[in-house]
Write a protein that binds this DNA or RNA. Structure first.
Length: 423
RNA sequence: GGAGAGAUGGCAGAGUGGUCGAAUGCGGUGGUCUUGAAAACCAUUGUACCGCAAGGUACCGGGGGUUCGAAUCCCUCUCUCUCCGCCA
């Protein structure tokens, strides 16, 4: 969430910046500023009453000590007045503070100046493209048919056990899955990311910290009995490692990576989007997360994009990089690059990674700060990216590397799979 | 699941109703000394909010209560530990 003092000082610029999201935030922001003003006035009154009340209590204490109980008792009535007054002001303050924060929670991050204007994914800007579309010939198959033909993934079995969108990976299909996870983790390790295995369920505070709550509540599976959420991405538990933490500048950059399954309800999805591996309720992903000094975060974003680029190059997949437009940008992000691979049999681009700089937006919710050169605490910048999400990578690998009687495994995976072909 | 104990500053650990935001030790930072280092000594060392400032307020796991006054008493929630049971 935006910092109230920043909003207070730069409201017109922020309203202007948010227009890229195709939404006019003038009214809610004005309301926030109004509540903020009332809130501060109320705090001043409250603090003053408390100060007087505290002074009076000290005086009464002194009188008791000096044995002047009668005088002390005479002052109790006044004290009761202070108490009533301060209680009333505290209630008023909390009410104003809650309302202000509630409104503030629903204001998204301000897009970076280089974010293109636009309404939907059609307006995203292609900033890079490489690799060639393989020539598959006539009888090529989409990945769900290949998965069936070579007995790699069983969607029906998953539907029987759990429901649609929960596939069962089998045989070489399962081994390929494991190979990709290990390959991605090893590459992240080589790039200096520290691996963690976080919990796969998180509490409300964590969901709020990274911005999934309260806005995207419906996207997560919620275990209501214990009030825990299945993670939609490792971003949530990993970034929350740094909730309520004050870092030293010399600790930058903090680089973490994690493999986890990810759970998403994906309510409202339908059609060809959800066929096969295109959109699942449970999938595997290796995530990279960085915590950076505000001055360095955009350089870091570039290194993260380059890291993912390297993975796609090693896998030999045709891909492109998009700079998301304001209308497609996530709630918490200031700038996002999406990586898409070309799925040759489906003849469509599939998003396999999303790499974002959240600047201080998450840090403010997380209360993740660092001590700057002057010893003052400031909010850090947080970033994360998929490196990579497995299902669509598998879809593209199966489709793009198929021939008449099998599927070729890219060389970088051989030492992980133990086989070079699926047939 | 049953029974009990506990939660204090970066850590350890005092404090059981009145200048306590909190002793002391360790750690951190700055300095003196030293060729350098160590040791020793001196100083400093929580966070947030309000305020131009002076200063004020809040916070001793969270919330509520008693009291003129609470880290200290009461209620409640959460978490941790010990024992028993169950168990991958």
């Amino acid at each position: 969430m935006l910092e109230i003092h920043v909003l207070r000082e730069n409201a017109p610029e922020i309203i202007e910046g948010l227009k890229k999201r195709n939404h006019d935030f003038t009214a809610p922001i004005n309301e926030i500023l109004e509540l903020d003003e009332k809130r501060r006035a109320c705090q001043q009154k409250m603090d003053q009453v408390l100060a007087e009340s505290n002074a009076l209590s000290r005086d009464i204490g002194d009188l008791f000590k000096r044995g002047k109980a009668e005088e002390a008792n005479a002052m109790r009535a006044k004290s009761a007045e202070y108490k009533e007054e301060s209680h009333r002001l505290k209630e008023e303050f909390q009410e104003l503070d809650n309302r202000m924060n509630e409104a503030l929670h629903h204001v998204p991050n301000v897009p970076n100046t280089i974010v293109p204007a636009g309404n939907s994914d059609k307006d995203n800007e292609v900033v890079h493209s490489e690799g060639e579309t393989p020539n598959l010939g006539e009888n090529n198959l989409p990945h769900w048919e290949l998965a069936d033909k070579y007995d790699l993934i069983d969607f029906d079995l998953g539907a029987k056990i759990t429901g649609a969108g929960f596939p069962v990976y089998k045989g070489k299909g399962a081994k390929l899955q494991r190979a990709l996870i290990n390959f991605f983790l090893d590459e992240a390790d080589k790039a200096g990311y520290n691996e963690v295995i976080p919990p796969h369920m998180v509490n409300e505070e964590s969901g709020f910290g990274t911005g999934q709550l309260p806005d995207k509540e419906g996207q997560m599976y919620h275990a209501t009995v214990d009030n825990l959420y299945l993670i939609p991405t490792a971003e949530v538990p990993v970034t929350n490692i740094f909730r309520d933490v004050i870092l030293e500048s010399k600790q930058f950059p903090i680089k973490m990576c994690a493999y986890t399954p990810c759970f998403r309800r994906e309510a409202g999805s339908y059609g060809k989007d959800v066929r096969g591996l295109n959109r699942l309720h449970q999938f595997d992903k290796v995530e990279i997360v960085q915590i950076q000094h505000p001055d360095q975060s955009y350089d870091t974003l570039t290194t993260m994009v380059d890291h993912v680029k390297g993975l796609l190059q090693k896998l030999g997949l045709q891909f492109r990089i998009l700079r998301l437009c304001g209308g497609d940008l996530g709630f918490t992000s200031a700038l996002t690059y999406d990586m898409e691979v070309f799925s040759a049999a489906q003849e469509r681009w599939l998003e396999v990674s999303s790499i974002s700089n959240f600047e201080t937006f998450q840090a403010n919710r997380l209360k993740c700060r660092f001590r700057d050169e002057n010893g003052k605490t400031r909010l850090v910048h947080t970033l994360n990216g998929s490196a990579l999400a497995l299902p669509r990578i598998v879809a593209a690998l199966l489709e793009n590397n198929q021939d008449a009687d099998g599927i070729r495994i890219p060389e970088c995976l051989h030492k992980y799979t133990g086989f070079e072909r699926i047939d």
